[in-house]
Each structure stands twice: as C-alpha cells, then as structure tokens.
Simulated scan of single mutants.
Amino acid sequence: MSDHINTALVIGGGVAGPVTAMALQQAGIEATVYEAYDGTAEGVGAALGLAPNGLAALDAIGAGDLVRGLGDPMKSIVLQSWNGRQLAEIGNPGTLEPTRLVMRSDLYQALYGEACARGIRIEHGKRLVGVQEGRDAVTAQFADGTTATGELLVGADGIRSTVRNLIDPAAPQPRYAGLQGFGSVSTLAGAVPDTGGKMFMTFGKRAFFGLQVVGGNAVWFVNLPHPEPLTPAEAVAYGAERWLKVLAEACAEDRTPALELIRHTDPAELLITGPMENMPLLPHWSRGRMVLVGDSAHAPSSSSGQGASLAIESSVELARCARDLPLDEALARYEALRRPRVERIIKHTERTNSNKAAGPVGRVLRDALMPIGMKLMNPEKFSAHLHHRIDWAAPAA
C-alpha cells in the first residue's frame, strides 16, 4: 500500500460525504458518494452552529462563501439560570468571524448541490453491507446486490457507521449523554423579543433551553434529561403531541419564553432529534484501505457546537494527506493530525452535558461557580479551538 491513490468511494451523503468528495477531487482523486437512502434529505434536521474553524475549512476547498449566505451570525452565547440571571456571555474574539446559525437541511442542500455542480457523482439507494479488500483496491458491497471498487473507502456514514464496524467489529458504540433533543422554528410574530444576534441558553430547573430570533422567527431547542436512551425512532413513536406536553411541564417554572413557544408549536413542526450522544474514543480510525471521517470517527454531542465543523475539517485534512503521501502514511498522518484535537473537544462537551443535566444541588453549585469561573478564564484560551486553520497549500508531511 505504498502508492498514491487515484479513486475513492465515499460512504454517506450527509454533510461530511459531499465535503470529502469535493476535497478529494481538489486533491486530484476521483471520488463517488454512495448514500444509503433512496432520496435526498431536504427538510431533515434542526439548526446547527457552523463555527469559524468550519467555515475556514470550507474556504480551503472554495465552498466557504456558499455557506456564509445561508444562516445568521451568532454574535455571542448568553448563559442564564432558570430565573433569568445571566451567568456568562461568550463571544467570538474580534479577530474571528462569528459562528453562523444554519438549518442542517439548508447546509446539506448547499453542499450536495455544489458537489453535483463540480461533477461529483452521488448515488442513492446504496446501503453498504460489506467489503472485499484486495492488495490494490477495496470493493464495497451494497444491499441491492451491486458493488463498487476504488483504491480507498471513506466512511462518512455518521454516528451509527457501518464502515466503523467493518474496520473494527469490537469498536465502542455511541455513548448516551442523558439528554433527548427537540426543537422548532416558531413564526409567532412578536411572541419573543429580538435577541440581537445572540443565542440565549438557559440552564432550566428541569431542562436546558436555547433561543435565537432569526429573521423574525424564533429558532429554539430543548435538551431534556431522560434516564433511558431512546433511539430516534422510539422518540418519534412516542408522538410529538405527547412530547410537547412533557416539554411544557419541564420548562413551566423557568423565566424564559420556552413555555409560550412550546404551547404554540404545532406538533407537525416539532423536530425530534433523538438522543444526544458522544462517540467514545476509538482505538482504530482506519484499517487497510478503509478510513473514517466526521461523526463516524469523532462525534461530539450537539452541545459542542462543533459537530459539523469538525467533520468538515477532517474531510479536508484527509484529502490533503491523501494528496501528498502514500496511502498507509497518509492515513496515519491524518489520524495523528486530527485525533488530539477532536478528543479534546469531545472531553469538554461531556462536561457541558453534565451541567445541562445537573440535579438540584448541582444546579445551585453550577449557578454560583460559573460566573466566577468565566471571569477567571482567559477568553483567548477558551476560544482557541475556533482559530484552527488547515493550510491546504502546505505539504501534509
């Protein structure tokens, strides 16, 4: 496996898949994307934050400006207690552009369309079920009986990755963070005051609530502590109408707009995003001619605000390494560049999730200590992860 590669199979057509294919194409490697679902994912998913580091990674493949026009800037995050007391305000350093709040569906459509415009083939209805590895190539086997062969197979197939299990059948599974996710976009004119480009996040008595008013619409989410993990399908099966009642009860005592927004949400408009999960540290990111990117390798929970940005970074960095190094060296270099960074962010996110699910005693301690801790913290150190840049022109070696 000492040769440079010319062709790649990208498994998964979400956010990381098209970005990986575009980055590989820019590196001179022909890539085809294979998506398990028959159709596209328009309208699927809630809002997410695309951080400055993620936008910079898209700039490396000429797609940053495409995404900047999609969302609204998030000038800062204001942390509050249940009674409206401000605990902290976290803003991007003045040297960085703001994080952008975008709907996942909008981001997906933009990246999908750009990949197609660049001549990248995306095939649907291709659910991976197995692989055959050879000395010079790897063949993907799909549930419909078809196959595809390339010199590299990239798993961009999300937190429940099939490729991850093929690389390492003993790989750990996603770890539940103790929270279920919900959200919606309310068009209630004047129902809540304008947030001035800020995201307000509230540690409620029984749930965590986030809100930003964008274009007159209230984009909101709730992280609800739940003792047992529910799969996305189980959470949906419980029913949006029943969940809205649960959410209203959980937010009833908090001095936020949550209760009013929940009460005026049509059940058909409630986004049930399912369990919030992290990926435990994986012993192996690659094997032979197979490698992982994005959530399949390093999914932080949504509390990080970095899931999409880290996935985009890894896609670009993998392509840079594959451009400059023989395959075995490229995969080792890619992991060495990415693993310390993503594991550090995942570890920080686990602490954030603990704060969201704090009990009565933990809540009091958190609300008392957080303002002190934030005042003592060096703002530049706190935002250091946002400054990360990939120098596409620099040799990966």
Results as ranks from 00 to 15, higher is better:
M1N: 00
D3P: 01
I5R: 01
I11H: 02
G14Q: 03
T20Y: 12
A21W: 08
A27E: 05
G28I: 14
T32L: 05
V33C: 03
V33Q: 01
E35P: 08
A36V: 09
Y37V: 13
G39I: 13
A41T: 08
G43I: 14
V44M: 05
A46I: 14
A47K: 01
L50R: 06
A56F: 13
A57I: 14
A60W: 13
I61N: 00
A63H: 03
A63G: 00
G64K: 06
L70S: 05
L70D: 07
P73N: 01
M74P: 02
V78Q: 05
G84H: 08
R85Q: 15
L87M: 07
A88W: 15
A88F: 15
I90T: 00
G94A: 10
G94S: 12
G94P: 07
L96F: 14
E97V: 13
T99G: 06
D106V: 11
Q109M: 10
L111V: 06
L111F: 09
A115R: 01
H124R: 04
R127S: 06
R127D: 07
R127Q: 10
R127Y: 06
V129M: 07
V131L: 07
V131G: 00
Q132C: 02
G134D: 12
A137G: 07
V138H: 03
V138K: 02
V138R: 00
A140K: 12
A143G: 11
T146E: 11
T147A: 08
G150N: 05
E151S: 02
V154G: 00
V154W: 04
G155H: 05
R160K: 13
T162D: 09
T162V: 14
A170S: 12
A170L: 13
A171E: 10
P172G: 09
R175M: 13
Y176K: 02
Y176G: 02
Q180T: 07
S184K: 06
T187V: 01
P193F: 15
T195F: 10
M201P: 00
F203K: 01
G204R: 07
A207R: 09
F208Y: 15
G210N: 08
N217W: 11
V219E: 03
L224E: 03
L224H: 03
L230K: 03
E234H: 05
A235P: 02
A237F: 15
A237P: 00
G239M: 11
G239Y: 11
A240C: 09
E241P: 02
R242K: 08
W243H: 00
E249Q: 13
A252M: 10
D254G: 00
R255M: 15
I262C: 04
R263H: 11
T265R: 02
L270G: 01
L270I: 10
M276S: 04
E277C: 15
E277V: 15
N278I: 15
N278G: 14
L281A: 10
W285I: 04
M290P: 05
A297M: 13
A299S: 04
P300C: 09
S301C: 09
A311W: 14
A319F: 09
R323K: 15
D324M: 15
L325C: 12
E329D: 10
L331M: 04
Y334V: 06
A336Y: 10
P340K: 09
R341C: 07
R344F: 12
R344M: 08
I346E: 00
K347T: 12
E350L: 10
T352I: 15
N355C: 10
N355Y: 12
A357N: 08
G359D: 12
G362S: 06
L365N: 03
R366A: 04
I372G: 00
L376C: 06
L376F: 12
F382Y: 07
